[in-house]
Design a protein around this nucleic acid. Structure first.
Lengths: 116, 116
DNA sequence: GAACTATATTGACGTTTGTCAATGTAGTTG
DNA sequence: CAACTACATTGACAAACGTCAATATAGTTC
């Protein structure tokens, strides 16, 4: 995943049957793998889950850095990957950047994995 | 993922609430990321989907190599990762190794990603 | 506008990953 | 048992990844 060729998850999942219904094309496999890669990192999974579990459904970087135990640039880096992949949105208000779950993004990935 | 610390997906998913219910612990995030990483590769996604879509629900390496366009060692390598992660089983009969989907493995990952 | 604050970007570095050629292994067939 | 077949393992290498320190950027406050 070169991070430039990340499609938002909504585009990825618009196209396809569930994974086990018919063989994935090379192209669809690439796109789906990109979305899954964005999720397939412990720090990013925790970020998604922390954002989702936050009061009001949003969190700023400052809330996330310390509990995650990673540096601020690293956290920003992971958040960018999640935004680019279409799992989170970023909303800058004043000095803070607030991140939210994109409604339905996880669900649509989930639906693709389910058997029949 | 060092491939030695891969937990089968059934162990990974036995423990946890859906991703968005409460914040993942570092340990659970590591395990779930391991499972997702096993899936987050275009070749492996296609392998899973080709195996699932095969007649009788199983396929041998020889069936998979050519349509995938990768060398036989590479295909074996990917299949091993999928077996270690608990998504496929391997059954050696005669000269051939037959791979099958583990029932429920994809579903349990899927359930973890679903919102609410 | 100067000092400050929260976040993003850049550049560097070690680690992990995906791939293949070469080789090893186990089962089959003559 | 010798030749063959299907698959696994090893070793090597380039590419991608995760991380941080340093720096840049944009907004706030005095």
């Amino acid at each position: 995943m070169t991070l430039t060729d990340l499609l938002p998850v909504t585009d990825v999942t618009a196209c396809c049957e569930p994974l086990t219904r018919e063989s994935l094309s090379a192209q669809n496999a690439e796109a789906l793998a990109g979305s899954l890669k964005a999720l397939a990192d412990p720090a990013r999974l925790r970020l998604v889950s922390m954002v989702a579990a936050s009061e009001g459904g949003e969190a700023c970087v400052c809330d996330l850095t310390e509990p995650l135990g990673l540096s601020q640039p690293t956290v920003s880096h992971h958040l960018k990957i999640l935004v680019d992949a279409g799992f989170l949105t970023r909303d800058k208000r004043g000095l803070w950047a607030y991140y939210r779950l994109v409604p339905g993004a996880l669900d649509s990935i989930s639906r693709l994995l389910i058997t029949i």
